[in-house]
Amino acid sequence: MTIQSVFVHESAYVDEGVTIGEGTKIWHFAHVLPRTTIGKNCILGQNVMVGPDVEIGDGCKVQNNVALYRGIVLEDNVFCGPSCVFTNVLTPRAHIERKDEFAPTLVKTGATIGANATIICGNTLGAYCMIAAGAVVTKDVSDYALMAGVLARRIGWVSQSGEVLGPDLVCPRTGEVYKEVDGQLFPVTED
């Protein structure tokens, strides 16, 4: 186990074969299973279960009561709201063992997943997307997409700062400008 300058609450369990980056905090009743990598300055809330074979980037916040199963990758600065759900197989049955069918799920940099949202395995959540509380995501999500509903659909766009963009596609917080091309959103960069 590689743990440098981290906080692990006395009620949490961290198994052998785990790598945890500096500044990370693991709170009450959390369990980190083998072959899991957690980046720097992350927070795992109460009753979080991670692994085995999960990758969490730097600066991620995983709120209370979230389980991250094998094959889930959170890139940097991902926010997982309380009690959000990641599934691991598409057709679970109690009487059939399907651990070899866990589908990978990628959550890209800066994405936010709201409380009680459900992410069906095998999908990719785009960079800086925002999934509304209670939404059920059944397909890939574009970068910067604002998704809501059951089943989740895109209802708008958000900026890197998490602000909902109006028709002008200008972030009201930072003034950043975005452009939409073929159903995808991109920040406008000065050349």
Rank of each mutant, 00 (worst) to 15 (best):
G17I: 01
S11V: 07
L68T: 00
N65S: 11
F29S: 15
L165C: 12
E10R: 10
A30Y: 05
E163N: 12
E190V: 13
F7A: 10
E22N: 15
Y69V: 01
A94Y: 06
F79K: 06
F102G: 07
G122T: 02
D100E: 11
V50C: 11
D53K: 06
R35P: 03
V62K: 03
V85E: 01
P52V: 04
Y178I: 01
A127F: 02
Q63G: 07
G81R: 09
E97A: 11
R98S: 06
N116C: 15
G149F: 15
V181L: 13
P52Q: 06
I56P: 12
M130T: 09
E190R: 15
P82Y: 03
V6T: 03
D53M: 04
E10V: 11
I72S: 02
R154P: 12
H9S: 09
F79R: 06
Q4E: 15
I120N: 10
I72G: 04
D143F: 10
V150W: 13
E101Q: 11
I38W: 01
S11H: 06
G122Q: 05
V137L: 11
L44M: 10
V14P: 04
T105E: 00
Q63K: 11
L33H: 07
V136A: 13
E163Y: 10
L125V: 08
S159E: 00
P34C: 02
Y13M: 12
G39T: 04
C121A: 14
T36R: 01
V78E: 00
H95K: 12
V48Q: 05
F86R: 04
K99S: 14
V73S: 03
S11E: 07
L68I: 07
E10C: 14
I3E: 05
G110A: 08
I72A: 03
E176F: 10
N41H: 07
P104W: 11
T24Q: 09
I26G: 02
H31A: 09
V181Q: 07
C42L: 07
F186R: 12
E190G: 15
L44I: 02
P167E: 10
M130E: 07
C60K: 06
N77T: 02
D53V: 00
K99F: 06
W157K: 12
R93N: 09
A94M: 08
T91H: 15
G39P: 14
T19V: 11
L125A: 05
A115Q: 05
K108P: 01
V48H: 02
V14W: 03
V158D: 01
E22Q: 14
G110W: 07
A145D: 01
E176R: 14
F86L: 03
L185R: 09
E16H: 13
